[in-house]
Design a protein around this nucleic acid. Structure first.
Lengths: 336, 336
DNA sequence: ACATTGAGTTGAAACGGTTCAATTTTACGA
DNA sequence: TCGTAAAATTGAACCGTTTCAACTCAATGT
């Protein structure tokens, strides 16, 4: 590491004062055009780079956003992080990441680490498990620390959230299958206390109610998680007698696990049994049996989330509730 | 945002000097035990949090590491980022991420952004495409900026790299199939100029040579990328007449795409054709047809990489060449 | 010729820590 | 009780920016 060129060196080189150089570099109105150009050239010539720490110390801004997702191995969250990063980089922000493994304590630790690192704001996929202590989040909210939620929210803190309209998505897809005449449908969700499950379930119930059909709660299966393996295991460990017409998984990854296990049992998809996912991850269309699913536009969600957060950072006043993003049912071969 | 408590407040509260408080909080040897305890309590009571910018300005360290991977959507890199994050967090470092999309220019931009953000070091999966300008990397190397490479390296800059022993892995798996009597094997790789492809190819050739069998280069297929879709398309678009006994994909994701396309063409795996991947991503074992593959221990690679980087940061002198991590062939149903 | 205005620039005070030479306090042996 | 060495603490310099009140200076109107 060669010793670094500071703004002082640029000032000395140009014969201007440090303040002028600083303002020139920041494009201040009060500096003459030609001075700005001159300073820019000199800075370039000397290879000057702003020291981010000094800048941050003075401005109290780091232009770094912290982001917490449950599990980066899940392609859905992979795509989410990818889009968030893209949106942020475009606006000259950096993204620092953490993975909470669906554990509220880890999420809490990450949040406080991020704050200690001086992030300007946080985007989190909250761990909405109701069993856990949420006071940290409440305090942040009360201090109006810029944290926004994506893809879920805390029941008690339904603010600054961007998520897909899960209930409506599930309503649509359930209704469409009810209309086709299928009634015996199984729903493999994760922990039903979590918002993402309970919202979907509401959609399901609403669809049955709208169709005037009674909903049998024994068709809800609570898997050990929302992963490929959880889907796989749920099918493998199922000892019941009921063979549903359609199985709905809480997400595509889980649907893939379910399909895999069903096939291993010798069933054909969609002939013997239909399977639908949720999310429309990028290769859902290219699976051996292209997957019927409900698309949440991750890209749109991420863009809205970043916009919401940055608007808050800039002090613009923003929508503070739960913004729901429209979903779309996509019928593919796995459940024609 | 309530106004923050500074070290000065703690000093005033305890009646000690700022210097003492700072050293006490940093656990300096020169401060009396009881003073440290006293200061810690006071700091706690006042809710003092160190300002990271001031700290960094003074120490010239941010405890943030930048990490660049080609594509976060690929589960292999998802797992990689997950492990890197875990290793770093354990050592109280933060991880800031960027995605290069296999594009050297994007990588370059990210690297310089990271440096401007004041990262202490960089971990990159390099885009080893030889067509592109690599002078930035060379300069970094010459300035001995702490950058380490994972999973690949630049041909001209074979330093500070941790990667799986791709050549040996491919040698092993190829040899094992040659031994079983299969000779007509196809290899679907990405751009052959890239290290990850060329190393594997060397392994293949070495295995054929060792078995005394001539290798037919027309069995190498260069796909348009290394994604699920690239694998899928390669099979779909194949118009040749040759039906190989075994298809080796450059990675598991691609193997999945290949299997999917083969099945769509009515072939049975492994009866009609065998398929093997590479990486052993976490659900490779749970696919409909569990996947034969070569396991690279991502976790071990990540740990070695982080250790290497942090040792460099601490000025310890470290191994500076290419550290190869042992791979393991895993035979599963897709290619019994 | 002279006040007035406004554009452009300066200089010093933050920002909140770390570091270390200098100084003070403490502990111990004679 | 005193002298001295070791331990603990102090205080000021420093890190590299931003910010803004005060200042300079040229242009303008009268």
């Amino acid at each position: 590491m060669k010793k670094s060129v500071t703004i002082k060196d640029v000032a000395a080189y140009t014969g201007l004062s440090v303040g002028t150089v600083s303002m020139a570099l920041n494009g201040s109105e009060r500096i003459a055009q030609k001075t700005k150009k001159y300073v820019a050239m000199a800075a370039d010539e000397l290879g000057f780079r702003k020291n981010p720490f000094a800048r941050s110390l003075s401005t109290k801004k780091s232009r770094i956003i912290g982001c917490i997702v449950p599990d980066i191995t899940n392609q859905f969250y992979g795509e989410m992080v990818g889009h968030l990063q893209k949106e942020l980089v475009e606006r000259d922000y950096g993204l620092i990441v953490g993975f909470a493994n669906e554990d509220r304590n880890q999420e809490a630790r990450l949040i406080s680490q991020f704050i200690d690192r001086g992030v300007d704001g946080i985007i989190s996929v909250p761990v909405t498990d109701t069993k856990h202590d949420i006071s940290q989040i409440r305090t942040l909210y009360e201090d109006s620390f810029p944290i926004v939620f994506i893809s879920a929210y805390y029941k008690d803190i339904p603010y600054y959230t961007v998520m897909a309209d899960l209930e409506d998505g599930m309503y649509q897809i359930t209704a469409s299958f009810l209309k086709k005449g299928y009634k015996n449908m199984a729903f493999v969700f994760g922990d039903l206390n979590l918002i993402p499950s309970s919202e979907r379930l509401n959609g399901v119930k609403r669809a049955y109610a709208a169709a005037g059909i009674e909903f049998d709660p024994s068709n809800i299966f609570q898997a050990s998680g929302v992963t490929y393996l959880a889907g796989y295991s749920t099918v493998v460990n199922y000892t019941g007698h009921n063979k549903p017409d359609v199985i709905f998984a809480i997400n595509d990854i889980m649907a893939m696990g379910i399909i895999s296990a069903l096939r291993a049992k010798g069933m054909r998809i969609p002939e013997d049994i239909k399977v639908a996912g949720f999310d429309d991850i990028s290769n859902a269309a290219f699976l051996e049996t292209p997957l019927t699913t409900v698309s949440q536009s991750i890209e749109l969600m991420c863009r809205e989330t970043v916009t919401l957060l940055l608007n808050r950072l800039e002090g613009k006043n923003t929508f503070s509730g739960i913004k729901k993003i429209q979903t779309t049912v996509i019928i593919r071969e796995s459940a024609y």
